[in-house]
Design a protein around this nucleic acid. Structure first.
Lengths: 181, 181, 181, 181
DNA sequence: GATGAATGAGGCTTCATTCAT
DNA sequence: CATGAATGAAGCCTCATTCAT
């Protein structure tokens, strides 16, 4: 799976052959099919692994809602989202590129919706607690999530060494402005 | 090109064959090669057409910078960005999915950087004019652009009929909060 | 189809590759798929062609039932069956070898049953006319058909040049004894 | 071997993999190669086992030639041939289907020729003894053998429960007519 | 003896591209 | 200009066979 990920990232999914993958993994072509039903299924497995990591990373924040200083939580989420994207940028890039054919109910979409729900849920509780003030928490959540993730991804795409601290600082500042009453 | 676009959107680029395209366009397979050098080149042509539309759509705003009420301009940009994305959502989806292999300097990347420059330039002038106040105008521009575009795209992906007015209202409100001193 | 037939006969169906067939036919491998959906479908097409020939060969006899001397008709059928098998022996051999998986309702089985019906029908009319006398015309028809065809096929299998006249003479004699009152 | 036979019969020889066989036999794939050199050799072994049974079944009749009532012997042979085929129908079907490539001198062909020799030998002695009368005992033997065996096989192929008694009665009657002076 | 993961040759099939008509 | 039959490289996948445990 690691060999495949590397190749998919550098050459694209359809330009990477099963032969390329097995060669990179130093196994025979047939061995591939002991572990995956097809090339397509490998992609599904990679997606799943990614989604799992994403949820594992996000869940802890769910428990912190309401337990602590609202602004500290917002900062922590922003911080974590930037770092997670930076660390998984390559995976993100190619997994999100996967022909997300409209209508195909897939793992990734579900995950993304859960994430949206978590964020917007947090915001709503924050509003009720009088800490935040946003007109449309649902859309604001989606906006901030995408703003953050894709800003990081563009940074990676265009710069050799993205400036993590600058990204974190900016995202935190923007999130604070958005949530501010 | 229209037939190709439709097919690329619905079935993905690599699952669409030249035969599919020519059939949809009611011409013979050989005819394809009278107008395009290869399938790959068709993709490039589609990208180019898209990029042209994007720039054509964005340029007028460049001229409006400084000529009018800053907040009206911000609203107009937000408004236009939502509408443009809504109208070209399908194209966006699959063009942005194109194996954006890192390192490949391509038209789309250039366009996106120009767009970023326009937006962040406008913000900077706005700041100098004392209308806006943002810490990092460059990153803020990227953040708002991606926040807006991908929020619209998620809306299209998950909802049958996205609520345009709600999207516009939210984006405007968020942009105002971000730019507000 | 002719190239395929030759190869199937000499090397067996599963030992003959599509590459072998196209090479023998002096066309490219891809050309095969312009005319057949798959290797399996080619087999079906060959079966169909064979079945058609078989029925075309058999039908004229149906019209002769009752119109002429019974014994002349029996002789003619025997004669024709030997000749048909001799001429198509190779095709017979490999088509009949095809995994006739029980349960698979296929063209060949249908054809064979129609043939049985024609023969046993003829015998029955002959009995009613007082010309023949057989206890169980249905099974007798099957017995004679298989006796004839497989005797010819064994002759071909074991002898270089089967003695057509001897085969015809013997089959005629046996058929006469079987049908005789 | 039993597992293999079952699978070969139901799915055909080339559609049955060694993995299928070992799974059905509840052993590991490697175990197969402790007992057989190759898949091909297994087929040879099955053929051999079948041929042995066939000869074991036929030999006793050889000794009965000339020792008893000729018609009783003919009846007994017919009877036995129907029963043997009924019992081994599945094996017969797929073993006879085996790419009997012309030229390949194989066990099965030898066996069949021995069988033909036994039958035609019996007939000849019967003729010399004045009991039977056939023009061409050799071909008549082949004709009766194939008529009988393939009639039974067709009965099995097309009917759920073949009527053994009807088959035996018919075959006996036909054989008697053929051998009758 | 038994196992089953690993192998890799080779089969089937697809499809971008060409070219004679 | 348009056509579409022909091409053949290249991909995916299967499966008989091996071998270290």
């Amino acid at each position: 799976m690691d060999a495949a990920t590397r190749l998919f990232i550098t050459h694209g999914t359809s330009d990477t052959t099963v032969a390329d993958i097995t060669e990179a993994a130093h196994v025979a072509k047939g061995t591939f099919y002991l572990y995956f039903d097809s090339k397509e299924q490998l992609l599904a497995a990679l997606k799943e692994r990614f989604v799992d990591e994403m949820m594992t990373n996000a869940l802890p924040f769910l428990e912190r809602i309401g337990n602590e200083d609202w602004w500290a939580l917002a900062d922590a989420v922003a911080d974590n989202m930037v770092d997670f994207t930076l660390e998984h940028a390559d995976l993100c890039t190619f997994i999100m590129q996967q022909p997300h054919t409209p209508g195909t109910r897939d793992i990734l979409a579900d995950c993304e919706q859960k994430l949206n729900a978590i964020i917007s849920g947090g915001i709503q509780v924050g509003i009720e607690a009088g800490a935040f003030n946003v007109q449309d928490p649902e859309l604001a959540a989606v906006f901030m999530k995408n703003g953050t993730i894709h800003t990081v991804m563009e940074a990676i795409l265009y710069e050799r060494k993205p400036d993590r601290d600058r990204l974190v600082a900016t995202v935190k500042a923007l999130v604070r402005k958005i949530l501010a009453p």
